[in-house]
């Protein structure tokens, strides 16, 4: 029993990291109709940006976090300006290929600058807290709290700011949004900023949970997509449920299968959802 609860805790931590990635991915898809295959690598970039402040400038991770989020947003906007904006008029699938290439470029850039070895923010071992026989690392609590705060902030932004409303309007009906005078290019810029920042946040939390490694984000692409699809792609709120489901399922699977097959579980879940409910658990868009 205690073992199951322990695994559940790992699952919730992993699930919250996946959630953060999936929410951004879903948001981007909802507004740009574009599955961003570079999303995992944007997570990696965010994690390494935080490392610049932590290892380079000696800042604590709490101060580096917002800077890396801003950096992730800037990187995302820059990529959009240079590449995607120009390709947006062509077939959407060209954007897909381009983002696949962008992901590869980011990954090799990270490897070029920081090298292929794995790194950590703070050297040393964190001693887990013992609560009712459960081992919980302080970092796990930080990650969970951080994800909850970011998701609440995003919720407030989408619900109560003018830009957030414009985003939801564009996600619901692009043409109608344009007719009502919403500046689509500005909304797109904000969408990338949010997507990039959320990805950076997910990357930093992932690095806190494991280590910094050039392939860390690429390896998360599958669970993040599975979560977004499960929540009904284009529906950021659904992505929360999707992310938690995928994270918990991945960790729970280690009770039955070799942990080596953890990422296969995300895939299996995704395939089942695609067969049974292609529009996601809560009926997202089908086209």
């Amino acid at each position: 029993m205690i073992e199951i609860l322990q695994v559940l805790i790992f699952g919730i931590v992993l699930g919250s990291i996946i959630t953060l990635g999936a929410v951004g991915l879903s948001l981007l898809f909802g507004i740009l109709r574009f599955a961003n295959f570079a999303h995992g690598d944007m997570m990696t970039v965010g994690a390494y940006l935080a490392l610049v402040f932590v290892a380079g400038l000696g800042w604590p991770i709490y101060a580096a976090f917002p800077m890396a989020l801003a950096g992730g947003a800037v990187v995302a906007i820059a990529i959009d300006r240079v590449l995607y904006k120009r390709l947006r008029r062509t077939a959407p699938v060209i954007l897909l290929i381009s983002s696949f290439g962008v992901g590869l470029m980011l990954r090799s850039l990270v490897q070029f600058i920081w090298g292929p070895q794995s790194l950590v923010y703070e050297p040393g071992i964190q001693f887990p807290l013992e609560i009712f026989g459960l081992r919980i690392k302080p970092d796990h609590l930080v990650i969970l709290a951080g994800v909850i705060i970011l998701v609440i902030l995003l919720h407030l932004f989408l619900q109560y700011t003018k830009m957030g409303k414009a985003m939801r309007a564009m996600s619901d009906n692009m043409d109608l949004a344009e007719i009502t005078g919403i500046e689509t290019e500005r909304v797109i810029m904000w969408t990338w900023a949010l997507g990039g920042a959320l990805a950076a946040g997910a990357g930093i939390f992932l690095a806190m949970d494991t280590r910094l490694q050039p392939f860390m984000g690429w390896n998360m692409l599958l669970p993040v997509f599975a979560a977004a699809i499960m929540g009904g792609i284009g529906k950021p709120y659904g992505a929360i449920a999707g992310g938690m489901t995928v994270g918990i399922a991945e960790e729970m699977s280690t009770l039955f299968f070799s942990p080596a097959y953890k990422s296969a579980v995300a895939f299996a879940l995704m395939v089942i959802i695609l067969i049974v409910r292609p529009t996601g658990l809560f009926g997202g868009r089908s086209r």
């Binding site: 699938v93 897909l96 990422s263 895939f267 995704m270 395939v271």
Partner: peptide, 13 residues
Amino acid sequence: ADYLAIATIGIGE
């Protein structure tokens, strides 16, 4: 197309 793409990534993995 994008679902097929992500499914093929999964198969690769």
